[in-house]
């Protein structure tokens, strides 16, 4: 079936099997392999992209469900020669090792800061009715949907904290 997606600002036509996940559409059809497949079941976060500004697991949604949606992938955030502030902070703080979870971490972190700006609470927020401060614990909780087996977590928190400030 035919689906039109706006990927990183560019309209892309997808003519594919209805079974194609958004992740597989990006990786196999649009050759945007920055979004990673770590588990294909929403259990690792490596496939995180932003759809209409919100972070989601692109493995757990069908491409055909996103006709007309705006998709932002890691490739849309910055390029090696022109990194986004979050990408740059990940490099400087060594917020990765193998790099496989990294695009998902960065997409997740970028969108997570918007959620925090909007005043969304998290499970570690003491007072649900106030605007939460983005403490290290808050960052960690909000980033817990992105596994990193190399376990760069403390560096990831450092990078995000710096960008948030």
């Amino acid at each position: 079936m035919k689906t039109t997606l706006k990927v990183n600002g560019e309209e892309r036509e997808l003519e594919a099997d209805s079974r194609v996940s958004l992740l597989d559409a990006l990786r196999n059809h649009f050759r945007l392999t920055g979004s990673k497949k770590g588990c294909d079941h929403g259990q690792c976060g490596a496939c995180t992209v932003m759809v209409n500004g919100r972070r989601i697991n692109s493995c757990l949604t069908l491409a055909c469900m996103h006709d007309g949606d705006e998709i932002t992938t890691i490739e849309g955030l910055g390029t090696p020669g022109s990194l986004s502030p979050m990408q740059d902070a990940f490099v400087r703080h060594d917020g990765y090792q193998c790099g496989y979870c990294t695009p998902g971490q960065i997409c997740s972190a970028t969108a997570m800061l918007e959620e925090a700006k909007a005043g969304w609470p998290s499970v570690v927020t003491e007072d649900l009715e106030s605007r939460p401060d983005l403490t290290d614990e808050e960052i960690s909780e909000r980033m817990s949907g992105n596994l990193c087996r190399c376990a760069a977590y403390p560096n990831i928190v450092d990078a995000i904290r710096e960008v948030a400030e």
Binding site: G42, G45, T48, R54, R55, I56, N57, L60, T61, S108, A111, M112, E115, P121, S122, V123, T125, L128, E129, R142, M143, S144, G145, N146
Partner: peptide, 21 residues
């Protein structure tokens, strides 16, 4: 404000990405 048990339960579930979907 009025149903914090619901807010807390939701926030305890899954991940930020999954809760968005």
């Amino acid at each position: 404000r009025d149903y914090p048990v619901l807010s807390r339960a939701l926030l305890a579930g899954a991940s930020g990405q999954l809760r968005n979907k």
